[in-house]
Design a protein around this nucleic acid. Sequence first.
DNA 1: ATGCCTCCCCGAGGGAGA
Length: 259
Amino acid sequence: MKIATFNINGIKARIQALTDWLDEAQPDVALLQEIKSVDLAFPREHFEDRGYNIETHGQKSFNGVAILSKLPLEDVVRGLPGDDSDEQARWIEATVVGTRAVRLCGLYLPNGNPAPGPKYDYKLAWMERLKNRAQALLDSEEIALMAGDFNVIPQPLDAARPEAWEQDALGLPQTREAFRRIVNLGLTDAFRARTAAPGHYSFWDYQAGAWARNDGIRIDHFLLTPQAADLLTDCQIDSRIRDREKPSDHVPVWINLDA
DNA sequence: ATGCCTCCCCGAGGGAGA
């Protein structure tokens, strides 16, 4: 089962780039972030034509997550538990059944800049809620994963210029600590389970020729429960599509599970 | 980068992103 995560930076602006990539990469599941669309405006036909089932959790203008899946999506839940007053659309989960059932959680973790400030406080509080959901997933002993745009640079080797992010909400020590506390519950960073080398990124700023200089950061991640990690056979970043017409500033990251 | 793009809102120019 090939499962991808992709922050598309606006579904309306990304129809061509996204459908071109889907046609080539042929993921069974794609977890999308920053659809920037309400549910009713999501252009479902482009994906239904390709055999995908669709579940969205959108809002006007900002944020918004979705799941595309060639297999039926069951037990869909929208919104990260732990704060009923949180109006931001950043979390969706569902189960797909291939040869085995896999619980999928798609997430768009808050950026948090400027830090310190209320946006950074919201990011840290959201990560605490994420930790609670992660612990519950681990306790369930399911084949499960959390994937998406985490807006966290886990280690210095995950940035071309790590020093430039030390004061940024994506790279502050407190951000990395909060991320480690989640991973250290017993999850596996799928990319790092298979690739130790530096120089692999999932985001390049549109500005200042960041892509041309490979001035990137790795902030889009797959975290797997042990039951999912046992089934991991591949994890790659499709960075080449950053070079195309009207790209997102992120590129897809995907895993293959023997499930 | 205290922001050199690009997205969204709409129909100007500001907020947000990372």
